[in-house]
């Protein structure tokens, strides 16, 4: 870009501003990226320069029954949460688009409440209720609690996809003789598909990363990966933990990049 009228002071200010922004971007990204190479360090020191490159900490995870059991629990709970939260959220989002005014706003407020509610409050509330019912230290309890936290994200993602959706397409489908469920399957779903996928990914990540509710509900038998990691960090940060952290970072980056790519493609398609 040409800046014909820029004064030297103005240019200096612009460079200073860019430098500041570069620093802030580094603050945002560097901590997440810095932990990844440390997990490949051949010695147990968590600092640079690396003494050598090795995958021994990853081998540690694979060799430890503890970590593998935690990973298994995490996957079971997160997959089940996704399978329940996605259809619930899609249905709720479809319902919300047909409403308007105060009813819609207040229902949306109620559904979104778990996002902003202090998570410790949610955790102990569910714990007080589930403990006498025998739902602590069980998959069912964890899945139910995670689903509540995950559904709002599905509703929001699908709702965003539905915002650009032309309702007359549904009427067109109906006028051409399609039954309501056919309209949903053949007209609505393909259009909001990326939104549904995004919602499912958000639901999975919500459960897969959840820690506070899990801390109260998961007994010794149902420890998830984040919970096991939390206990580890509190005890002492070991290189194995940086390896687990790296795996969690990769999981979120891969899944959410897929969402972002789909979203951008959708934006291009819609012009």
């Amino acid at each position: 870009m040409k800046r014909p009228f820029e004064t030297p002071v103005g240019r200096a200010a612009r460079y200073a501003y860019w430098g500041l922004c570069a620093g802030i971007f580094a603050f945002l990204v560097a901590p997440v990226l810095a932990i990844i190479p440390l997990s490949f360090n051949s010695t147990a020191f968590l600092s640079y320069p690396l003494s050598g490159v090795s995958t021994r900490w990853y081998a540690d995870i694979l060799a430890s029954g503890d970590w593998l059991a935690a990973l298994r629990n995490s996957l079971i709970v997160a997959v089940a949460t996704t399978l329940i939260a996605t259809p619930l959220g899609v249905a709720a989002a479809l319902g919300l688009t047909r409403l308007s005014g105060v009813l819609r706003a207040s229902l949306l407020g109620v559904i979104a409440a778990p996002i902003v509610a202090p998570v410790v409050v949610v955790a102990i509330a569910v714990y007080f209720l589930y403990a006498p019912l025998g739902l602590t230290d069980s998959y069912l309890g964890l899945i139910l609690a995670h689903t509540v936290l995950a559904v709002p994200f599905v509703v929001i993602a699908v709702g965003a996809a539905l915002q650009g959706f032309d309702l007359s397409l549904m009427r067109a489908g109906a006028s051409l003789g399609a039954a309501p469920h056919t309209v949903y399957l053949r007209v609505v779903l393909p259009i909001i598909g990326p939104g549904v996928f995004a919602g499912a990914v958000f639901a999975f990540m919500t459960s897969f990363d959840e820690i506070v509710v899990t801390m109260f509900l998961a007994g010794p038998e149902r420890k998830t990966l984040p919970l096991r990691m939390f206990e580890g960090v509190r005890d002492q940060v070991s290189p194995t933990i940086t390896a687990v952290a790296t795996l969690l970072i990769l999981t979120s980056v891969v899944l959410l990049s897929a969402v972002e790519l789909l979203r951008r493609r959708g934006e291009k398609l819609n012009g």
Partner: peptide
């Protein structure tokens, strides 16, 4: 660059800071 940390879990980012800020940390 904003979304990358946003997508990473709070636990992982707190852990990263625990590693970086240690007495013998980076």
């Amino acid at each position: 660059l904003v979304l990358l940390p946003f997508w990473t879990s709070v636990l992982v980012r707190s852990t990263a800071w625990a590693v970086l800020l240690q007495t013998n940390g980076v």
